[in-house]
Amino acid sequence: MHMHKFEKIWLIFGIGALLVFLTVLGVSAFYLGNQPPSCLATINPEKVDTTAPFNEPGLKKVEGKDWDYELVYVAQAFAYTPGDIEVPLGAKVKVIATTKDVIHGFEVAGTNINMMLEPGYISEFVTTFDKAGEYLILCNEYCGSGHHMMASKIKVVK
């Protein structure tokens, strides 16, 4: 099949750019560890309140791990537990969350924290809060009539 010379140049350039782009994504994912939240752990959604760590939602200092704090959230229509919370500036935090009923979103606006919470699964993401201020947590996956009222807050303080 004949291809015009300019089309060959165009496609070689395009496919080359694509390879570079995919290599960047791959190195970032597998060498630097920038993977999307994929915890793969399951939980009985009807027993969330009695299953650790979700029996005690909130911020907890931990020792001997790669992160300093664990921040545990339970989502249900149409609220997050805990409500407003304070996190020390510069803390490396593992956010752990799950849902008791339907699918919810867990987005901390202005940060890279953005996960789906699905019944039966635990979602996790490790991040460092390196900018002081108030961050809005909101549900970004439709969950019912109160979806847009479902919110919480993280205050990053010195």
Partner: peptide
Amino acid sequence: LMEPGIDPAWKFLQVVLTFLVVIPSLM
């Protein structure tokens, strides 16, 4: 991609396949 129950390596594989439509789009 943001879902908890899928292994990230399989997510990445499908990301690569997704980007292959770039070729017919450029054509």
